[in-house]
Amino acid sequence: MKILVPIAQVPDTTAKISFTDNNTKFNATGVQFIINPYDEWYALVRALELKEAGLAEKVSVIHVGLADADATIRKALALGADDSFRIDTDPADAYVVAQQLAQFIKNNPYELILMGKETISYNSGVAAGILAGLLDYPYIANASKLDINGNTAVAHQDIEGGYQVVECALPVVISANKGMAEQRIPNMKGIMAARTKPLQVIPAYPVNITTKYEQFELAPGRSACKFIDPNNVEELVHLLHTEAKVI
């Protein structure tokens, strides 16, 4: 079995968010980029664990994006992925990414496509589902545990208030939630090895582009906090009722 892990690149969680070009573009100046945590900590690490357990022959990572992401892809290789691909185009939205991935997978079949449940930048959480729909593969969303049993994926799928144990024959698209694996730190050997692992750049496939970010605006800050005496919690209840009107 071969596993494909699509990875997104996102601003570091502590990055200062700002916009340029009249608030129509994210300002990447001085921003540190990382692999989207859901893709890295859960999807990629679990894929590597499955390979280490002898359940997968190969783990490939793929990124839809421009050359500035190559360092991010190398990090995935340093963590242990065998090879990597970059589809050379702007990842304008989840639909664009999914269409590119679907074309790639039609030409290069993988039995398991394992990706994070959402990016922490655009928070769409739909790329995996669109991809599964385009390929008409079965889709397990929000898996917090994943095992492979012969030709079958066995997963815990998170639902409201709990999880369900599900099974599905391969091939399948799975989106990874917290809990599937634990974050790893690349070691020196991995970082050295990553330098010579394959990173193949693939020209973009023709796709539909249907959405556009027209305008950004920063969320407004809150006005100053009103402090209430810990011995007068009734005051808080009163304010929540009469001023905030939330109870």
């Binding site: 995996a128 589902g129 669109i130 385009l134 539909n208």
Partner: peptide
């Protein structure tokens, strides 16, 4: 979210 995204894929349309 899961159903909507899968449907967008089946329809091959924007979301």
């Amino acid at each position: 979210k899961a159903v909507a995204s899968y449907l967008a894929g089946l329809l091959n349309t924007g979301i």
